[in-house]
């Protein structure tokens, strides 16, 4: 990838280009794995790519970048994700 000698603010694609945005969160999604049916809706809907997909299609949350928007909890058909207030 070419790096520009820019005098303005340029950012290059990488994990966490804008820093660890998990600190913005008021509520965090918590997955009840026993209820998860691996439908991957949370993974597909997450606007930040903060739902991680495992080899076996199990899901987990990347709390370094999850901003706590709650879309995953809203979309989960099994209500297996709950939003819990951060400490």
């Amino acid at each position: 990838m070419e790096r520009y000698e820019a005098d303005t603010t340029i950012s290059y694609p990488c994990v966490g280009a804008a820093g660890k945005t998990g600190g913005w969160r008021d509520f965090k999604p918590v997955i009840d794995q026993s209820n998860c049916i691996k439908c991957l809706r949370c993974w597909a809907y997450c606007p930040e790519g903060a739902v991680l997909r495992g080899e076996d299609d199990s899901v987990s949350i990347d709390y370094d970048y999850c901003k706590g928007c709650g879309i995953c909890a809203r979309e989960c058909p099994k209500k297996a994700i709950t939003m819990e207030r951060e400490d």
Partner: peptide
């Protein structure tokens, strides 16, 4: 000196 180009993706006007 810099440009938006899909072959070399960058964003500008980002958070500073």
């Amino acid at each position: 000196y810099w440009r938006l180009d899909w072959r070399n993706p960058v964003t500008f006007g980002n958070v500073i």
